[in-house]
Design a binder for these strands. Structure first.
Length: 470
RNA sequence: GUGGUCGUAGCUCAGCUGGUUAGAGCGUCAGAAUGUGGCUCUGAAGGUCGUGGGUUCGAAACCCAUCUUCCACCCCA
């Protein structure tokens, strides 16, 4: 039997205790902010039926779904001679046919997949539990999601999302609330951010107004690249996407737009004389901006027409957050979806939500050294072990200290003192308690402060009191 | 998914155009008057050179495949 090198699938990671302490710091911060705003937790299974997942994220998204092979003999029911199509009853024979309709074959052997995000499972959850829920329903959800993407920096195949959504109200107050949550979370974590928002109706309006409503996606994707590739190439790309010259020139004012939010709104209002949808978007945008202006948020925010979020289900406001000091994809994003639950049989319910990317937030904080030192160590007191008798004595005291809620431990054997103190030192345990014969007889403990090296003799009562005071 | 890129001790890397027993720093472990850590000193362990093929008298170095890393596109947290 050969020894195999241990490894984990690409794009996945192990987390060490140090990393977990830091990750939990992020989760706890996010969680407590969510709760302050009145959101409650839910969880859903790691796997969903493929029928729930497929078709919700566009063609690209479908490809990125991790599918789970049916258990047992998943080839059962497929005749030896070929493959029976699911949607018509003509048997097709031969492996070549099977390959040519890989979709149908996949549906046969796999009916579950790992969740791709938390929003779609949430929609499914709402429809399934609609009778038990109070609307507007505000929930948060912190769980891993999986995407069969090609990994890169800040891009993993398994990562945690922290979602907050509210469903059952079209009120713009919730957009404001989410932007407040973003501000609060990042202020607490110490990350300086810029929150960008846009409105899907404005994007649709632009496409409509320049006479190419069916090309909205192409147009938004191209506009999104403006910073990256420049005006000329954007226009070139639009041309390649079969957009008329007249449409491209009509788009120029939008591409060249700059100045304050109000300036941009004026440009758009002018354009939207030809688009009702666009006007609606402007009305929403103006309302949102006026509400935000009164709030004195600590982080930057602004309207950005170039913001284009791909997911097909957004219909109103779209939001994205970037860290100011680190080059990384967005660390938070989301938006308003008017009919996410419609496909599951509950039409006309509007919702809005955002998702914090815990893993990217971790990377950003790590790069900027933002994790506070104080979250590091857990054990605060180590009892040094001098032998069976001393052990007994220490165990009693150890128990008392733990009852006071102070994390403490005892060294497992009477190794050299040197070794025991080194253990404390390496684990960054601040206090070591030495109980040997002297201490047992006198009842005075020797307490060593590892940071300063100072030792003191304290009675057990004094010691416990001093621990509680810190 | 498309196009690149990286892979040598636990970690960070060196190893000249293929040539004999593959190196360093850090870390680890063991010692340095037997109840005192971090610093210092001494010593030791640790590598199928990502994996599998091939070229060659000879490969860590060259070729192919494969996995992994990172990057660009795509998309996104």
């Amino acid at each position: 039997m050969s020894v195999q090198k241990p490894s984990i699938p690409k794009g996945t990671r192990d987390f060490t205790p140090t990393e977990m302490v830091r990750r939990n710091f992020i989760f706890n911060t996010v969680r407590s902010v969510f709760e302050i705003f009145g959101y409650l937790p839910i969880e859903t299974p790691a796997m969903e039926n493929l029928s729930t997942l497929m078709g919700k994220y566009g063609e690209e998204g479908d490809k990125l779904l991790f599918k789970i092979l049916n258990s047992g003999n998943y080839l059962e029911g497929i005749p030896d001679s070929g493959y029976q199509m699911t949607d018509d009853s003509n048997p097709v024979s031969g492996i070549r046919h099977l390959k040519s309709d890989i979709g149908a074959f996949t549906r046969h052997i796999s009916e579950k997949g790992l969740r791709y995000d938390l929003t779609v499972p949430f929609a499914r959850f709402v429809v399934q539990h609609q009778n038990e829920l109070v609307f507007p329903f505000k929930r948060y959800q912190i769980q891993p999601v999986w995407r069969a993407d090609r990994p890169q920096k800040g891009r993993y195949r398994e990562f945690f999302q922290c979602d907050v959504d509210v469903i059952g109200s079209p009120s713009l107050l919730y957009e404001v609330e989410l932007i407040q949550i973003i501000d609060e979370v990042f202020s607490r974590l110490g990350i300086q951010t810029t929150t960008l928002f846009n409105n899907r109706k404005i994007l649709a309006g632009i496409a409509e107004a320049i006479g190419a409503p069916e090309k909205m996606n192409e147009i938004t994707v191209a506009i999104d690249k403006l910073d990256k590739i420049g005006l000329e190439k954007v226009c070139l790309e639009l041309k390649e996407k079969d957009l008329h010259d007249s449409a491209i020139s009509a788009l120029q004012p939008v591409l060249l737009m700059e100045g304050s939010i109000n300036d941009k709104i004026l440009v758009l209002e002018d354009l939207f004389k030809l688009s009702e949808t666009g006007m609606k978007g402007i009305v929403e945008l103006k309302h949102l901006v006026s509400l935000l202006k009164d709030l004195d948020l600590r982080n930057k925010w602004t309207f950005d027409v170039r913001l284009a979020r791909g997911l097909n289900y957004y219909t109103g406001t779209i939001i994205e957050v970037k860290a100011n000091e680190v080059a990384m994809g967005s660390i938070c994003g989301g938006g308003r979806y008017d009919d996410l639950t419609g496909i599951f049989g509950l039409p006309g319910v509007s919702g809005v939500g955002i998702s914090f990317g815990a893993d990217r937030i971790y990377d950003v904080m790590n790069e900027l050294n933002l994790f506070p030192e104080t979250i590091q160590h857990t054990t605060r007191v180590l009892f040094v072990n001098f032998g069976p008798e001393e052990e007994r004595f220490a165990l009693k005291l150890l128990n008392e200290i733990r009852h006071e809620g102070i994390p403490a431990e005892i060294y497992p054997d009477s190794s050299k003192l040197k070794k025991q103190l080194e253990y404390a030192s390496r684990k960054q345990i601040p206090l070591a308690v030495l109980i040997g014969k002297d201490e047992m007889e006198s009842g005075l403990l020797t307490v060593k402060d590892l940071a300063s090296g100072v030792q003191s003799r304290l009675s057990t009562e004094e010691f416990i009191r001093s621990l509680k005071n810190i």
